[in-house]
Write a protein that binds this DNA or RNA. Structure first.
Length: 478
RNA sequence: UCCCGAAUAGCUCAGUUGGUUAGAGCAUCUGACUGUUAAUCAGAGGGUCACUGGUUCAAGUCCAGUUUCGGGAGCCA
């Protein structure tokens, strides 16, 4: 029976002394042959376990090494030392699992994120990653709570899809055909009729189109699942396998969509502010120290907590694409020719342009709407001006695009003509078009990159550090 | 995929204009220590200088290629 143990978080939170507890966890450090800093992952804070002299023999004391797992029974007492208000005075101590200190890679010292990335199977045991992944959990929980409170249905859209129409990026092929002897047609191409599904299939790049089908029945749905892009992207904000949240709402226009997205992001941040105070305090300090080593010009003006509170307390800036281009054209940066890429109406804004708007001009999250139709997907609703579509991107400081969404084109004829213009196979998409044939309604939705949200909230600058086991080009360890 | 940079002890790094036996801090090990906070003090061990080839009397150092990693860009969430 192991479950009569008490979690460290509850001991520290209660601060109640005089009772006997059994705690289990992993040794972070063992000081002075007497003090164990014990962590069980329930909180970023360690429990100090005091091993009274004479309780354990020399052999046992030697086995209390960094990384070892121990079971301790003892009394919760007020701490004499500084740094913690209560501690556990051990009555018995048992080594559950040894950890050879010469071989255990984590040492009681600061490690670089790059090194920890190589030992991702152990990095959960560090302060930083403990905090990051507790926050990630809270965010995931808050996502479901937010939508549940609003009557949204959580819809599981497929992971394997046969649709290649969305054009959201390169896809991973799913097949059971033998790679070196796949059946071919007369023209030499692969005969997918022989394949498992009888057609060519891929891993999903988005659940949106299926999500729209759900919204046309439940009114409001959301998806939250893994998404796959086979792009050869090597950046601090792209993964080959990532998690995305895609709400889809019937009877919503673009403004309703913006309101929901902004409310959603603020809700998530608020949830973490309220439920992960210790983790955020640690991450705030971690980031502050990292900032110190950067040159003055590259430092962030706000600390992590300050930034999160600011985002929650202020309205996002809302501008049209046309206004955004005007701001860029009027900007000192443009006049001093600081931009590498051309600025004019019709361009797909580059990172440098988005960063300027968010980090220099507005200094807060910005929602840009009504993009030129030429640079956006076929399903976005065509505006009256017949030049732009009802798209919206939310740009966050330090991250870039965190949300991409739109009001969808609900008018069958306009949708079909746009699909034909963009060479989307209309016949294959008949199931999608049925929503516009039978009881079509104005609707809208967006996608939020979950890892980018975790990055924003934790202040981690590399997306590989906010997912347990990152999948990126040339890297699929663990 | 493109541009830039890096690779030296378990980790983080230093290593001069190419020149004897490659250093430091932390970690580890041994010993000391009854109030420590990444404990402290004393001592010890620990290196295929990423890999392959080249230049040279001589290469950790210079050159070429390869690999891996990091930052930026593109694609996007």
């Amino acid at each position: 029976m192991f479950n009569n143990r008490t979690k460290i978080k509850s001991i520290l939170d209660a601060g109640e002394t005089g009772r006997e507890v059994t705690v289990m966890g992993w040794v972070r450090t063992f000081r002075n042959n007497q003090f164990i800093a014990l962590n069980d992952g329930s909180t970023n804070n360690n429990l100090q376990v005091v091993v009274p002299l004479g309780l354990a023999d020399d052999d046992t004391l030697k086995r209390i090494t960094t990384g070892a797992s121990v079971k301790v029974t003892g009394e919760v007492v007020p701490s004499i030392g500084k740094g913690q208000s209560v501690e556990v005075k051990a009555n018995s101590i048992e080594i559950l699992g040894d950890s050879d200190a010469e071989k255990y890679p984590l040492q009681p010292k600061k490690h670089s994120l790059e090194f920890l990335r190589e030992i991702a199977h152990l990095r959960f045991r560090t302060n930083t990653f403990g905090a990051v992944f507790r926050v990630r959990h809270s965010l995931a929980f808050a996502v479901h709570q937010f939508f549940n409170e609003r009557g949204f249905v959580y819809l599981h859209t497929p992971i394997i899809t046969a649709s290649d129409a969305e054009g959201a990026g390169e896809m991973f092929k799913v097949t059971t055909l033998p790679l070196n002897s796949a059946p071919t047609l007369e023209d030499g191409s692969i005969d997918f009729k022989e394949d498992f599904f009888g057609k060519s299939t891929n891993l999903t790049v988005s659940g949106q189109l299926e999500g729209e089908l759900g919204a046309m029945a439940f009114s409001d749905i959301y998806t939250f699942g893994p998404t796959f892009r086979a792009e050869n992207s090597n950046t601090t904000r792209h993964l080959a396998e990532f998690w995305m949240i895609e709400p889809e709402m019937a009877f919503y226009d673009l403004e309703d969509n913006m309101n929901l997205a902004e409310e959603f992001i603020k809700y998530l941040i608020n949830y973490v502010l309220q439920n992960n105070a210790d983790d955020l305090a640690f991450l705030d300090q971690r980031l502050a120290e990292e900032e110190k080593s950067k040159p003055q010009a590259e430092r962030n003006e706000m600390g992590l907590l300050e930034k999160l509170r600011f985002v929650v307390d202020n309205n996002f800036e809302r501008i049209t694409y046309t206004e955004a281009i005007d701001i860029l054209l009027q900007s000192p940066a443009y006049k001093k020719k600081k931009f590498k890429y051309e600025v004019k109406w019709g361009i797909d804004m580059q990172s440098e342009h988005e960063r300027y708007l968010v980090e220099k001009h507005f200094k807060k999250p910005v929602i840009v709407i009504n993009y030129p139709e030429g640079i956006k997907a076929f399903y976005m609703r065509q505006n009256e001006d017949s030049k732009t579509v009802a798209a919206m991107d939310i740009l966050a400081p330090g991250i870039g695009e965190i949300v991409g969404g739109s009001q969808r084109e609900e008018r069958l004829d306009k949708l079909i003509s746009r699909m034909e213009k963009m060479h989307v196979p209309v016949a294959e998409m008949s199931w999608y078009l049925d929503t516009r044939r039978f009881g079509s309604v104005p609707h809208a939705g967006f996608g939020l990159g979950f890892e980018r949200m975790v990055q924003f909230v934790t202040g981690m600058t590399n997306i590989r550090d906010v997912i347990p086991f990152a999948r990126t080009p040339q890297n699929c360890e663990f």
